[in-house]
Structure formats: structure tokens, C-alpha cells
């Protein structure tokens, strides 16, 4: 409860509107970077309209999904994995920045 209270205080301090604003830009940036990748075959299965999505993109890798997930975890990037190859990446606006998103993109670009 103490941790939850502390997190709520932080969210309150940042302001929910400011967080949503940053989240939209951060997720759009992630989508933009992912669209530049040509070395790997995948599909963004989350709606493209920012109004229809939150701070998360689901990426469907028809091949090597599990391998990519393992590489991310090994690199300290916490992402969710769902069979059959869906990686769910959520740049949370409170504690993730544009450099974190760029790092995720670089790992995909340079390792696969």
C-alpha cells in the first residue's frame, strides 16, 4: 500500500493530462521508428489511431518472436510476450523516455 500511495503521489504530481500527452508522442515515436525497420518482418497489431490505443504497441513477429523477447530481457528491456510471437512493448510515460524507445529500436535493428 505504501508503494502504491507513493506511485499515486508521483502520478498526481506529473499530472494525468501531461502523462497522456507525453504517452501519445512517445508511442507515436515508437511506431515511427518501427516503421523504419527493414531487416525484420513483423506487424504492429495495435490500432494505428492514437485515440484507440494506450501506452502500448503489440508487435507480431511471425518468426523469431521468442528469440527477440529473450534479447530484450537480456538487454534490460522489460516487454511482455504472448505466443505465437506477440511482443507487447509499453513505453510508460512516467518513467520511460525517448532514448529508451530508441534503444529498443536499435536492438531490433542491430541484432536481427
Amino acid at each position: 500500500m505504501t508503494a502504491l500511495k507513493a506511485s499515486l503521489e508521483l502520478i498526481d504530481k506529473a499530472g494525468i493530462h501531461a502523462l497522456r500527452e507525453k504517452s501519445i508522442v512517445l508511442t507515436n515515436y515508437l511506431a515511427y521508428l518501427l516503421q523504419q525497420l527493414t531487416n525484420i518482418n513483423f506487424e504492429i497489431i495495435t490500432p494505428a489511431d492514437p485515440a484507440q490505443r494506450g501506452a502500448q504497441l503489440s508487435l507480431y513477429f511471425k518468426e523469431r518472436g521468442k528469440e527477440i523477447h529473450s534479447k530484450m530481457i537480456e538487454s534490460g528491456i522489460i516487454v511482455d510476450y504472448r505466443e505465437p510471437g506477440v511482443i507487447r512493448v509499453a513505453p510508460a510515460p512516467l518513467y520511460c523516455g525517448f532514448t529508451d524507445v530508441f534503444r529498443f529500436y536499435e536492438i531490433l535493428k542491430n541484432n536481427f
Binding site: 503489440s58 521468442k66 511482455d80 504472448r82 505466443e83 505465437p84 506477440v86 507487447r88
Partner: peptide, 25 residues
Amino acid sequence: HAPEMVAKTGWTSTELAEHLLHTHL
């Protein structure tokens, strides 16, 4: 949560059973 799917085009019941034994879930 988003669903987890262990499924592939062409799989028979035997292939599904085999993959289930080797898929980390």
C-alpha cells in the same frame, strides 16, 4: 490480458500436443 495462442496452420492434434510439451507457458 492479451490472449496467448499455441496454434499453427496445418497442425494435427498430435502436432499440437507435441508443441504444447515444448512451449514455455
